[in-house]
Design a protein around this nucleic acid. Structure first.
Lengths: 222, 222
DNA sequence: GACCGGATCATACGGAGGTTTAGTCAGCCT
DNA sequence: AGGCTGACTAAACCTCCGTATGATCCGGTC
């Protein structure tokens, strides 16, 4: 579907990566060879700690986690990732997991939960789905971060005016609201459109929606 | 938080309902009395079929389902509900469930999965969360359905113009696009604003976003 | 002090948005 | 045939948007 690599044998920042965290080295090795056999890059770690040391590249990826890890349990590790604001789809695997554990993991956002022994194909299916999901969320995040970058170039006044403009107020109402002359609001408005790269007001409104911009407090007067 | 009943002893369309489907009548009865003890309305059924006969009221509710049901399994039933476009949060319970079953149920959108025997409090917590979730999704659905009602009052031409307006095109561009005079577009536009109850263009844009309105085919020319 | 960017405002002009009034035309229902 | 609605258009008119030109004021930097 998506256009892939142009230089076939040159693995780089473009290709997805599978991260494996398991304290059993034989598991790490067999998973690594499984993924490599279908052309996926793999990074394996013996502990959660080691994984966290690693700088995560900005490519579609997923994390295979044994739920029973020596120091930090898989579930706690998942919570740590969420707390540290690390967004990566997690696939759990377990030998002796129970249902409450499964439910907790799934509620916390795990994409799958495989019981050992599992079929290679099941793992590959899970990884494929997880990477696809990550690809999408990274694409969205990319768009959002570009928007935030543009928004950051606005001055405080411009940000304030943008919120009011996208609320639907007229220039003259905005002027009254914040005690300015209408012409000044128009100037700010022009700057906003240029800096944000909006080609029309609807454009700007959609950007504001994505940025979750609203008037700081209270609703606009009827 | 939310303002509840004004007439305390008069259970009616305002109160949440818990639906219980289990083939074991003693389970039905004990769950019923549990929920009633905390003031929740309950409707219990011995089979999926019976539940489907029942007309579902438009109030916050949830469904407690045993995963092992005689004719139709809980999982299949869940799939049936989705296929029939019945939106209700499902809480599974099971005596002898396994992990793959749990994963499948959670992936299909179950809000919780309790193993028998469970503590009353766990069930109540799950039900409370499920009902709260349903309340929110019903509120959103209500807003959306009101919007669709308004949108339905638009003539085909008006719908077409609305799509182009919210895309960000100017009246004259819209006119050229669909072969009309600019003045005609303005007229349609006025009708649209009135019929949709939009107080401003940003308002209309947000409605279009919710209605997922886009140009029928292709992107707007640069 | 000189310089610069943010913020402010005035005047003026052209273009876009929006309403009212008024009229034509085609299709549909009774 | 008569009545109705949707769709379309024109002319006139007003408001609002947007930009350009030119200018003042302030706070911080070199």
């Amino acid at each position: 579907m998506t256009g892939r690599r142009t230089s076939p044998s040159l693995a780089s920042a473009e290709d997805p990566i599978v991260f494996v965290v398991d304290d059993d080295s034989s598991v790490r090795e067999s998973l690594s060879s499984l993924f490599r056999s279908v052309g996926l890059r793999v990074e394996a770690f013996g502990s959660a700690h080691e994984f966290l040391q690693c700088k995560l590249p900005n490519v579609p990826s997923c994390l295979i986690l044994d739920i029973r890890l020596p120091r930090l349990s898989g579930l706690d590790f998942q919570a740590e990732l969420a707390k540290a604001d690390i967004q990566i789809p997690v696939i759990f695997m377990t030998g002796h997991g129970d249902i409450p554990m499964t439910v907790r993991a799934m509620k916390a956002g795990a994409v799958d939960f495989l019981t050992k022994p599992f079929r290679d194909q099941d793992m590959l299916d899970a990884v494929t789905a997880a990477i696809e999901r990550d690809r999408n969320s990274r694409d969205e995040a990319k768009v959002l971060s570009n928007l935030h970058e543009l928004f950051a170039t606005l001055t405080p006044r411009e940000r304030q005016v943008m919120a009011l403009v996208t609320t639907g107020l007229m220039n003259k109402q905005i002027a009254a609201e914040i005690g300015l002359a209408e012409i000044t609001v128009k100037i700010h408005r022009g700057h906003i459109m240029r800096k944000m790269g909006a080609k029309s007001l609807p454009d700007l409104v959609r950007m504001a929606e994505l940025l979750e911009i609203g008037p700081p407090s209270g609703q606009p007067q009827t």
